[in-house]
């Protein structure tokens, strides 16, 4: 698993378009090189979706873990594992970007 800076704040990358259709979160690649094949779309499951919704560029991963652990009454350790797993995948796919490095971040 990729080593993550839990103090980092992430936002959706400009390389993708995230759409919510009938309650389902769909990530559509915008630029080349996001998926393994050319015609892939990504559907994010329930766990992924609640994490995704917190990636607003203002909330650090540590805070995301704490917020979701409280909200869903699960242990912090369990939630951190989910956050690390999901965010790791998103980073690998260049679907999110570090808000600190983004020109739009304040």
């Amino acid at each position: 698993m990729q080593e993550l800076d839990m103090d980092a704040r992430y936002i959706p990358s400009g390389n993708i378009v995230a759409r919510e259709i009938e309650g389902e979160l769909i990530i559509v690649p915008l630029v080349s090189g996001i998926g393994d094949i050319d015609d892939e779309l990504f559907s994010v499951n329930e766990t992924g979706k609640v994490i995704w919704d917190r990636l607003d560029g203002k909330t650090s991963l540590t805070q995301v873990v704490q917020l979701l652990a409280d909200q869903y009454s699960v242990s912090r350790q369990e939630m951190e594992q989910d956050v690390r797993g999901f965010v790791g995948e998103l980073l690998k796919r260049k679907m999110i970007t570090d808000a600190r490095a983004s020109p739009a971040s304040s």
């Binding site: 389902e24 094949i37 015609d39 990504f42 559907s43 499951n45």
Partner: peptide, 26 residues
């Protein structure tokens, strides 16, 4: 071709032409 995300706990990948994307409501 097996995509690494296909077996993920968080994401599934779909080919729009081959798979039903919306399990619940289209």
């Amino acid at each position: 071709m097996v995509n690494t995300l296909a077996s993920s706990d968080y994401c599934d990948t779909y080919d729009l032409n081959k798979s039903p994307l919306f399990g619940r409501r289209p």
